[in-house]
C-alpha cells in the first residue's frame, strides 16, 4: 500500500534566512529527513514550487510590510497547519524592538524615504493569522526542527519545552550568570536550547520567548536589586520578546 507523504512548504517573509538555514544545516540527516516528506515548496533553494494545498507550512520571519502580510495570509489559506519557525515569526525578535524606540531614530536613514512598499508595524505572525505550532529560537535549534518533522510524520503531537533555560543551564553545571552580575533572562525564558548561550558564558537574551508561567515581576525585582537600571532591564527584555510583554511598564513601576 502506498502511503502519502506530508505535503510541506518552507517560506520566508522579512527575516534573515537563518531559520531556513537551520533546517538545511541538519547536514547528516537532511537527505533522509527530506525523504520522509513531500517537500513541495522551498523557494530559498528551489526554483519550482508547487503552490497548492499544504499539510504544513513552516514560515520564517516577521510581518514588516504589506507584501509580507499578503504572503502570510495566502499561505495561511493554503496550509492545513501553520508553523511559526524561529523568533521573528514567534515574537517579532530584534526587528520588533523598533516598536519600543523613538520615531526620530529613523529620520536619517535613506530607506525611510521610500514609499512604494509600505511598512507595517513590525509584528510576529500570530498578530495576523492563527498559528498552530511554534518552533522558537533565534536561531531555532536544528535538532528541534528535525524532531518536529519526525514527530509530525509519525502522527505524534510535537512537544515544545516549557522549562526555563535555568533547568538546562544548571544541568550543564554552568556558573549562574546573574550571580556574576550579568542581566541574564534565563529564569523567564523557554529552554530547549541546551542553554547554548550561558554555556558560552554569555547571558540569555530571551530569544526563545517566555515560559507559560514566567514570573516577570520576580526577575525585574532581582535585576533591580543587582543594580541594573530600569532602562537596561527594559531594553534587554524587549530585545527579543517586547511585544509579548505588554505590561512591562506597569511591572517596572510597581
Amino acid at each position: 500500500m502506498k502511503t502519502t507523504k506530508l505535503k510541506i512548504g518552507f517560506y520566508g517573509i522579512t527575516g534573515c534566512a537563518g531559520c531556513q538555514l537551520s533546517f538545511i544545516f541538519n547536514e547528516d540527516e537532511l537527505l533522509s529527513l527530506i525523504d520522509l516528506i513531500d517537500l513541495r515548496a522551498f523557494p530559498f533553494i528551489k526554483e519550482f514550487n508547487l503552490e497548492e494545498k499544504f499539510d504544513y507550512v513552516f514560515i520564517e520571519g516577521l510581518v514588516a510590510n504589506k507584501n509580507d502580510l499578503k504572503t502570510l495570509k495566502k499561505l495561511r489559506e493554503k496550509a492545513d497547519k501553520l508553523v511559526a519557525l524561529g523568533a521573528c515569526a514567534h515574537t517579532g525578535c530584534v526587528p520588533a524592538y523598533r516598536n519600543f524606540t523613538l520615531k526620530e531614530n529613523y529620520k536619517h536613514l535613506l530607506y525611510m524615504k521610500r514609499t512604494e512598499i509600505q511598512d507595517v508595524k513590525p509584528t510576529p505572525v500570530d498578530t495576523h493569522v492563527n498559528v498552530d505550532y511554534t518552533i522558537p529560537g533565534c536561531p531555532p535549534d536544528k535538532n528541534e526542527i528535525m524532531n518536529f518533522i519526525k514527530d509530525i510524520v509519525k502522527g505524534k503531537e510535537p512537544k515544545i519545552n516549557n522549562n526555563p533555560v535555568c533547568v538546562e543551564c544548571r544541568r550543564n553545571n554552568n556558573v549562574c550568570l546573574l550571580d556574576v552580575g550579568k542581566p541574564c533572562l534565563g529564569p523567564i525564558t523557554r529552554g530547549g536550547c541546551n542553554s547554548v548561550c550561558t554555556n558560552g558564558k554569555f547571558e540569555c537574551w530571551g530569544c526563545r520567548g517566555l515560559t507559560d508561567d514566567a514570573d516577570i515581576k520576580l526577575l525585574v525585582k532581582l535585576l533591580k536589586e543587582k543594580g541594573f537600571s530600569e532602562k537596561i532591564i527594559k531594553q534587554r527584555m524587549r530585545s527579543f520578546v517586547g511585544l509579548k510583554l505588554p505590561n512591562l511598564e506597569k511591572i517596572m513601576n510597581e
Binding site: I13, T14, L62, V63, A64, N65, N67, D68, V94, P95, Y97, R98, T101, L102, N105, Y106, L109, Y111, M112, R114, I117, D119, P122, I232, Q235, S239
Partner: peptide, 19 residues
C-alpha cells in the same frame, strides 16, 4: 530588494556598544 526594511541602524540608537 522588496523585503521589509528592518531599520537596524535606527534601533541600535540608545543601545550600549557592547550590545
Amino acid at each position: 530588494a522588496v523585503e521589509g526594511s528592518r531599520y537596524f541602524e535606527g534601533l541600535l540608537k540608545g543601545r550600549r556598544i557592547d550590545e
